[in-house]
Amino acid sequence: MWKTFVAWFHRMGSPKWFYDITGRWIPWFAVASALLLIAGTVWALAFAPEDYQQGNSFRIIYIHVPAAILAQSIFFLMAMAGAVGLIWKMKVADMVAKSCAPIGASMTFIALFTGAVWGKPTWGAWWVWDARLTAMLILLFLYFGVIALQSAFDSKQSGARASAILSLVGVVNIPIIKYSVEWWNTLHQPATFTLTEKPAMPAEMWVPLLVMVIGFYCFFGTILMMRTRNEILEREKRTHWVQGLLSKK
């Protein structure tokens, strides 16, 4: 078991192998994410029941929560890929980490925007310094920092390594930031009503939510592979196999 994993890990490090295998995976992921997202959206908008307190604005949860979960896991994945790139000097890991950042930033933005829009009917204001929203805003700043650092270096390798260190520092800080923001929030305004914390959600509410979460993950997988493949083509464009591949089309 361990041996096959190690062998797989090493093959993953070869850009060509990664390019070939993801080329076979992408259609499956794309179809799965399209089906799940369309089914989940229709279910969420048209079939799920409304919330007894918040009415139909509750339907925003079906985007807000998956985007927020994804935004955090993408940051974690980015830091892990960065660490792999730093420790084992694996080029593919660097490229995966680089491809994560813009997707994660857009997911964070979706979570922030939907949270703000949801806040208007719920709290009566477009922006409330709610603990979760504030933590998301800080996460967005962290993503911007990583993206800015990536592009600040002339050499792609140094940019990748520097942003790997920054994302590792960020991952250590995210729990501290989350904890401190939550504490700050209870200090300044006692938590009267939080958007997503419901003790028990009936199945007809959480099943579409689960479908959306899985759909968002599949979508992320698809885009991540597409971006990483482009990154491979760009960085390996002097190699024989990439030139053959590009001229064929």
Binding site: L37, N56, S57, I60, I63, I110, W118
Partner: peptide, 21 residues
């Protein structure tokens, strides 16, 4: 959407745009 149409469609619309981008 029971009076919340603007909010729901705004949230879903912008998310759809970002996903397409």
């Amino acid at each position: 959407m029971g009076g919340h149409g603007l909010y729901v469609w705004l949230a879903y619309g912008l998310s759809a745009v970002l996903i397409v981008i």
